[in-house]
Design a protein around this nucleic acid. Structure first.
Length: 303
DNA sequence: CTTACGGCCTGGGTGC
DNA sequence: TGCACCCAGGCCGTAA
């Protein structure tokens, strides 16, 4: 599953391979995952790649038009679950589910393959792509501990859901959420706003450590993920929680459990990651709360 | 406003 | 051999 480290690995590979390359032609298979397939076919040929970068889990291919038009174009690619980008000579056999072929001026071909087609692709002008990316949160690898703390503490949902929320931090998915929480020894169901300073400091460090290590090892290859050359990542060998349910915790030997949090499979050590106190519903507070609710709705009615 | 939840997209893998 | 069902991540609509 391509999350931040996998997308970063692909982005670095693409930058090395595509930067300065001119796009000669585009051929499409199925197009239901592309915003405007006709625009891709018509506008992409003749452009030159100025650079490739990662933004959260998005790949952004910045393009320069050959006609000298000032307007900046960017190709946005989200790999979804099973999206793969490969650069190879055009004579390499085409595997099933390959839907985009981009001919390059060095004779090679950039291909997009996506079994599930949960990925997305769009060719956008400057303003439009900023609108898409503008809603995303901060880069987990760049965020300071202070801002990390502020952002997490503002959230009343469970920390696992907060880490997955792309408008808080951009780029973390299921694998790295579970791995970070295991490393920081925080239960996935703990409420973000209830994390204390020490827990937030540990989590900030854990997230950055895990992501850096995962990038160093070129990501996690669970089932589909491969880099540009078709190579697998190595970080799955360092997983301590993700898909380890039924196995012993690397730290304490307790059996790792799997539960559903925020609709996602969540793996954690019930010993190292202590459960938060059960939320109770005391009767006395209930009256207070309903009174508050009344006054709030009255205030609304006045407007 | 925020949060929770269910459904949807798709097709490989699994179990009967 | 066939087939129903589960599941993955992101996103969106709806309800509270």
């Amino acid at each position: 599953m391509p999350e931040l480290p996998e997308v970063e690995t692909v982005a670095r590979g693409l930058q090395a391979v595509l930067s300065g390359r001119r796009i000669l032609a585009v051929r499409l298979g199925k197009t239901d995952f592309i915003d405007d397939p006709a625009a891709l076919e018509q506008q992409l040929p003749g452009t030159t790649v100025s650079r490739v970068r990662r933004f959260g889990k998005f790949l952004v291919v910045d393009l320069q038009r050959s006609d000298g038009a000032a307007e900046e174009l960017s190709l946005l690619i989200h790999l979804g679950m099973t999206g793969q980008l490969i650069v190879c000579p055009p004579e390499v056999p085409i595997p099933p589910h390959t839907h985009v072929f981009v001919a390059l001026d060095d004779g090679r071909e950039l291909r997009y393959n996506d079994v599930r087609r949960f990925g997305r692709m769009a060719l956008l002008a400057q303003g439009a792509h900023e609108r898409v990316l503008g809603g995303l949160g901060v880069e987990p690898l760049e965020v300071s501990e202070a801002e990390f703390r502020t952002r997490i503490q503002a959230r009343k949902s469970r920390i696992k859901a907060v880490l997955l929320n792309q408008s808080v931090l951009r780029g973390i998915g299921n694998i790295y959420a579970d791995e970070s929480l295991w490393r920081a020894k925080i239960h996935p169901e703990k409420i973000g706003a209830r994390l204390n300073d020490d827990e937030l400091r540990r989590l900030h460090r854990a997230v950055q450590h895990i992501l850096r290590e995962a990038i160093r090892l070129r990501g996690s290859s669970i089932s589909d993920y491969v880099d540009l050359d078709g190579g697998r990542g190595e970080f799955q060998q360092k997983h301590r929680a993700y898909q380890h349910d039924g196995k012993k915790c690397y730290r304490c030997g307790t059996i790792i459990r799997r539960i559903i949090v925020a609709g996602r499979s969540t793996h954690f050590c019930p010993q190292c990651q202590a459960a938060p106190p059960k939320p109770r519903k005391p009767r006395k507070l209930a009256t207070q709360r309903s009174r508050k609710r009344v006054s709030r709705s009255r205030r609304k009615a006045k407007r």
